[in-house]
Amino acid sequence: MSNNHAVIIGAGAAGLMCAISAAESGVDVLVIDHANKAGKKILISGGGRCNFTNMYTEPSNYLSQNPHFCKSALKRYTQWDFIAEVDRVGLPWHEKKLGQLFSDNKSQAILDMLLNRCDELGVTIRLNCTMETVSQQENGFILNTNQGVIECHALVVASGAMSFPTMGATDFGHKLAKKFGLNITETRPGLVPFTLDARDLAPLKNLSGVAIDAMVSCRDMSFRENILFTHKGLSGPAILQISSYWKPGQSVTVCMLPDIDLAQFFKDAQQNQPNKQLNTVLRQHFPERLIEAFCQDFDLSKPLQQYKHKDLTSIAERFQNWQFIPSGTEGYKKAEVTLGGVDTDEVSSKTFEAKSVKGLYFIGEVLDVTGHLGGFNFQWAWASGHCCGKAIADSMTA
């Protein structure tokens, strides 16, 4: 049997950050994970480049039933704090766009930075460690695992959620929370591609692989980035962003070429270049395959002067007010995050300790806090992990 001040379940971004934060204050920390390698999700993030934070991180970049919950941690451990750590070890990085910061040396460099710091501080990481039972005792918790019994004063759940099940992601953290009487808000895949039914997909069948800049809207939210047509429906950054706000049955509106009023552009071109073919004008702005798919029932070969204004307006609407109702999403298998989770009303925003269970903490994705695409979820992992680690250290010395 091993006895530790703190045990952290999950060797991902939040768990490793929590271990570092607690160990820096002298806490004896053990991190356990059922996977055979630490930080698997870190390694695949950002296409292997690790979009490790965002310069424009604000509470408004997060979804939660309690939008105020994330404010404290994000204020106490900012994006600039994590950037300072990256700079401290000499890792080069760059901004790709929209404040998204990426490692020049791929994701492995960020993971190595965390693991090396854990090693320096004496943090023990035990992999291939499967949880069997967890029970509470007078001074903490008893964990029965496939590698023996572990006792601890503080137990941190940083096990993530259900996105990327092929990498071993499960709802373990939510089940554990329920075991201790905590509420779980509705969960669903977030930052996930849309699927379309066969009828809506048919006219788009030749567009797989086509990407274009667009403004995508659903309800009162809009995001502008690329959309990507797939053989199942739609993906790309703007689609992933809006998917977190979409609910089944709701329509999504796409405005391609959002910087131009296309209907007015057509009218001006009709007046200034009346003999120019409509197809030629469209090809200046849209890929050929996209034009064919969205204008199948129009003859585009005529000069602009031969079209009625209502026809040009109709064509403009097809590109700039395209509305569709997704048949669903590609699910947790392709989702970057899980929306919902441990109800934040059950957890202290200062310490991340469950209000009703002394010594039990929840951090990272397992909580009902989900960031936008672009490094925001990593920043939540760093912030919640750091603040939780400090809180555990404070509780040990209180």
Rank of each mutant, 00 (worst) to 15 (best):
K390G: 06
V342G: 01
N183G: 07
P274I: 02
P59T: 11
E225Y: 12
V29K: 10
P165A: 05
M167D: 00
F378T: 02
S301C: 02
D200N: 15
D259E: 15
S356M: 08
H34D: 09
K179R: 10
A14D: 02
R88A: 15
P258D: 10
Q284R: 13
K37R: 11
K232R: 15
T338M: 04
H68K: 13
L16M: 14
S251Y: 11
C388E: 07
V157W: 04
N51K: 07
G90D: 13
L182E: 02
Q284E: 13
L74Y: 10
N144K: 12
C152R: 03
Q296D: 12
T280V: 00
E24C: 03
K175M: 05
V7C: 11
K106S: 14
A263F: 01
L143T: 12
N146I: 02
A14L: 07
W382M: 01
V7S: 14
K302M: 14
T370Y: 00
A354M: 03
F141L: 01
E225N: 14
E317I: 11
A22M: 06
F378G: 02
N54V: 03
D220C: 08
A177C: 08
G374W: 02
G371D: 00
F265H: 15
G236E: 05
F319A: 02
K350I: 09
L121Y: 00
F194V: 08
F229H: 04
F378P: 00
G328Q: 15
V337T: 05
N206T: 15
G375T: 10
Q147E: 10
A19Y: 12
I392T: 08
L300G: 05
C255Y: 01
F52A: 09
S2T: 07
A154T: 13
R289N: 04
E95P: 07
F102K: 11
R289V: 05
D104S: 14
K40C: 01
A211V: 04
I42C: 05
K232A: 07
E24R: 15
K178L: 08
G47C: 09
F52D: 00
V89I: 15
F319Q: 03
S395A: 14
N128K: 15
V347K: 09
K71R: 13
A73Q: 09
L290P: 01
V89D: 07
L240M: 06
L143R: 13
G15I: 02
G233V: 10
C18D: 11
S348C: 14
P326Y: 10
C218S: 14
